[in-house]
């Protein structure tokens, strides 16, 4: 059965940065995420390194294991193969870039083990 895709990854989607600036999703840069998180009182950017990519429960899904932050917390997420992550210094990347381009018209690189993705954590966690 078809899974609803997040609408904001569609090429041309308008994204509001923390300072109010509007950009298209395909024009976002690493600095946009870093600067938005710096302004945010609640959110903090973490570096999440792809450790493993395995098949998921369904043919269109993958399980990605990340090593998150300085503590290298191991976190697994199951996503559709076309789900894009933002890789530091590289931009949008997914496990199946052809499918991401087909569905979202969003140019993507291939997400690989060792890639470092932008992720978020809460500030002030103790």
């Amino acid at each position: 059965s078809p899974v609803a895709l997040p609408p904001f990854f569609m090429r041309g989607s308008i994204i509001q940065l923390a300072d109010g600036e509007l950009k298209r999703v395909e024009d976002l840069k690493t600095e946009d995420f870093i600067q938005s998180a710096e302004i945010s009182s609640e959110l903090k950017i973490d570096s999440s390194t792809v450790e493993r990519i395995d098949s998921g429960q369904s043919p269109n899904a993958v399980v990605i294991q990340f090593s998150v932050g300085e503590l290298k917390a191991q976190v697994c997420v199951e996503v559709l193969v076309e789900y894009p992550f933002f890789v530091f210094g590289q931009g949008w990347s997914s496990c199946c870039p052809d499918r991401t381009t087909q569905l979202f018209e969003l140019s993507c690189a291939k997400l690989c083990v060792g890639d470092v993705c932008v992720s978020l954590t809460l500030r002030g966690m103790r």
Binding site: S13, I14, I15, A73, T121
Partner: peptide, 19 residues
């Protein structure tokens, strides 16, 4: 035209102990 917040594009993966 809908406008989406920047943080909806980034996965929320894990809380950290620091900060």
């Amino acid at each position: 035209v809908p406008v989406f917040p920047w943080h909806s594009l980034v996965p929320f993966l894990a809380p950290t102990q620091s900060d």
